[in-house]
Write a protein that binds this DNA or RNA. Structure first.
Lengths: 352, 352
DNA sequence: AGATTCACCACAATCGGTTGCGGTCTTCGA
DNA sequence: TCGAAGACCGCAACCGATTGTGGTGAATCT
């Protein structure tokens, strides 16, 4: 099965390669007689012709390649996004180049440059920092980019993500409804949009539901990880200011917080309620089952892909970037319960 | 930042493009004087030259593209593999094309064809069926392929995976050590190697540890999923033959089995012990924490990538395919315990 | 009938690198 | 001093598809 090329098809159909090309190309097909088109198509089929994408891309300057950039594919947040995007892209004839930056900026820069060398038509980026030089570079280079999951300052890129603000508000409302009056927020890193937005939303929701400043504290985690969630929680515990509920920046932070609480002898949800964010797979099966905010991740990826493709078709002359916030749900499970009668800041029933 | 091409660099360095090409190419650099090389390299640097991979690939017939084919990136088994492979591939100058077949053979075939059209140099395939026409097609086309996670009949492809046989043996040994004498295996689908191998290993281990045929039953699941694990477990329960332990084909099946057991009023590990396979993220945090077999997934991906690259460098004249089995560990957690005194086939203490 | 239009197709340039071949200039040995 | 060897570099063909331009013959118009 040696590679059959256009010239082979042309020879088999007894036409010039140029003609064969037109015959095979739907929007140029009008320039070729129906009978010839048929002959060429038939020959292509018979020989099992698959066009060489490299050559085509070289000539047309359109590779139909899309780069998807994620920080860590191992983080359960991203596979559904990638999957959603991949599905709509491949069915539209695009191919996905995946790259995992490992949260390393330098690495990320190299990867993106390498992908540019590969002639990708555009990027779906899930790693955006709030102020990201990489993004402005890409914008200057005129490369279409769609942000997902995270946004960036300036609102200059198309963007699709979950409605963080609504999610946090639902969480706080839920906790307040359960009688909690003193809540801490373990915020994600403040150099990414989700970290900032959720923290801001937390403060706003606290005020809205009548919780004073002192009772709505925020502690910032250095990253969205169990480890940093744990240390942030430990720091809050060390401060010895009473609280009965935790709104975590995401599920990983929530898990870390749960560990710290359990180490300190607090039971969840009896002593402290915890709510997460993202509804990662299996968090509903944990003990306690985590109350969390569910995002339509796969749809998010699919939408990001759609956005990117319209941007690609737009060829420059684009309107203001579309920014989509997807609705979110609060999934109430076992990690939240009515506030204890008195805040048990010291009821250490430490486990053995 | 208009695209700067080789001709631009050549002009800046006042040499012919061909010379510039050689100067930039490490293994042809010998044909150019050191001084010229320096001048060209400097110019390239200054202009920010990034070679056009399409053009290069077109001419050299080497794209430095590798396709990774997984059934479902959402399955926590695959991201670590992809990550491992991606890291070693990108640092070797390759780029990863990811495709998610959704367990759909037709889709998979289309994807692979499309990737071939893109000129990928080779594939890492994690979706292999035991008898897979796609694979033989690829082999005939002379496309290098490395199988990972799953093998295929004939042993004709390089392959890297966990040592299923050892994993299952460890599991059975562990259970027997706890006093279990009647164990059922919820096997994975029998058209993939892991399903077959683990089932075979189960029977062998049972015999080795002196468990009779009637006490080492096997029930096959239609897929590696919670749903099919559940129905398989339910079928076993319906048969009303007593047993005290379950060796699941993988963690997802184990989770499904856990559900079925719990619905039927059996407690784990008090009534029935369960052991999984793969040690997916967070299964250690479940209730009960799942005893399972841990595979070095990321290393698996990395090794697969290495294998593929050596195969690519070999250019056809290859020896017998390397087949690597990675060592596995049994991670003992809460879902396994000593066998109950009497097999409690009917001690329904059904939950409310 | 002659001129014009139109449909259809062939030709060749082009995308951006790579590489075999050959030419020039230097260097070294005899 | 002359010839051969070798180092260095330019030339141009090539990878495989796309597309603007132009040419041929048939159909149409007057």
């Amino acid at each position: 099965m040696a590679k059959v090329k256009l010239a082979d098809v042309a020879r088999a159909a007894e036409v010039h390669p140029g003609t064969a090309s037109r015959a095979l190309n739907p929007d140029q097909r009008g320039q070729v007689s129906a009978e010839t088109v048929d002959r060429v198509v038939r020959a292509a089929q018979r020989l099992g012709y698959v066009p060489n994408a490299q050559a085509r891309a070289l000539r047309t300057a359109r590779s139909h390649l899309v780069g998807i950039v994620v920080p860590d594919i191992t983080n359960p947040l991203f596979p559904p996004i990638v999957r959603g995007a991949e599905h709509v892209l491949t069915s539209a004839g695009y191919t996905v180049l995946l790259t995992d930056t490992d949260n390393d900026r330098e690495r990320e820069r190299r990867q993106i440059e390498s992908l540019l060398g590969r002639g990708v038509d555009g990027f779906i980026i899930a790693t955006a920092l709030w102020d990201d030089p990489l993004l402005t570079d890409l914008a200057e280079a005129g490369v279409p980019v769609v942000l997902t999951n995270r946004s960036a300052s300036g609102g200059r890129w198309p963007y699709v993500a979950g409605d963080d603000q609504a999610g946090v508000r639902l969480s706080v409302q839920h906790l307040v409804g359960l009688g909690h009056r003193s809540i801490v927020h373990l915020a994600g890193p403040q150099n990414v949009s989700t970290g900032r937005d959720r923290a801001r939303a937390f403060r706003a929701a606290a005020k809205e539901f009548g919780i004073g400043n002192g009772d709505a504290r925020v502690s910032v985690c250095l990253s969205y990880s169990e480890a940093h969630g744990r240390t942030a929680m430990e720091k809050v515990l060390a401060a010895r200011t009473p609280f009965t509920a935790v709104v975590a920046g995401n599920d990983l932070i929530a898990l870390g917080a749960l560990d710290a609480l359990s180490d300190a002898g607090y039971a969840c949800p009896e002593d402290v309620s915890v709510v997460g964010f993202n509804d990662m797979p299996f968090v509903g099966r944990l003990q306690p089952a985590l109350t969390t905010v569910r995002l339509p991740l796969q749809r998010m990826g699919a939408l990001a892909a759609d956005l990117l493709m319209t941007e690609l078709d737009a060829e420059g002359r684009q309107d203001a970037p579309t920014r989509t916030l997807l609705g979110v749900d609060l999934v109430v499970r076992g990690s939240t319960a009515a506030a204890p009668k008195r805040s048990r800041s010291r009821s250490r029933s430490r486990r053995t």
